[in-house]
Amino acid sequence: MMWGQYSYGLLVVLIAAAIAFIALAMETDDLHRFLLLDLIEIPSLAVIALLGTDLAEALVLPGLTVGIAEQLALSQIYCVKERISANPVHGLNIEVIAKADAPLIISIFLVVYGLILSGFTGGGVAGLGLVFFFMSRGYKEDLNLLEMASGISWAVWIFAFFVFMFLPQYWYVALMCAAVGIVLKVTVKMSLVGTMWGKGDE
């Protein structure tokens, strides 16, 4: 068989994966194991990227998301396991920011701009605006509202999927639903980061 570009690429990636796996097998500290896993995810994404088609781009995204999601859950389990409950990160405890109108204006600008952009980056920009706002104000309300918004965006996304599958002639509606769903989802996820941090200054 011929050694093509694909095989050379795979060789490099597999060597990287082997080094990472051996490191994980030798590591004994839990936190270090956890950090090494973050490293191991990268060769897995590289194997997918080696496909080199548009399909690869679409497969990297779920792969990445699954890795990040499991890390999120595992880090929380780690905190419970090690009884890490103190929250050393405080909000932006600057008196001027907490009172002035500027954070509000900047946040509104970022959210509006994010909604215009839509899609993944739009969600990121809008989320950044909300994170900044919550951090500067030391937001203390319960998370129910945000979680509900996250659930609704998920439902919108699923609805878009069914429109695509069973009513393909309404693809435009489905595309808009999916785009709005993803904006909501990314925004909510990022603003949750802001509120979790904001809780520190109680």
Binding site: P43, V47, I48, L50, L74
Partner: peptide, 15 residues
Amino acid sequence: LVALTATVPLFGGAA
């Protein structure tokens, strides 16, 4: 940790 490690060969295999 094992479940997270396992995603690497899973997705790699599919690719």
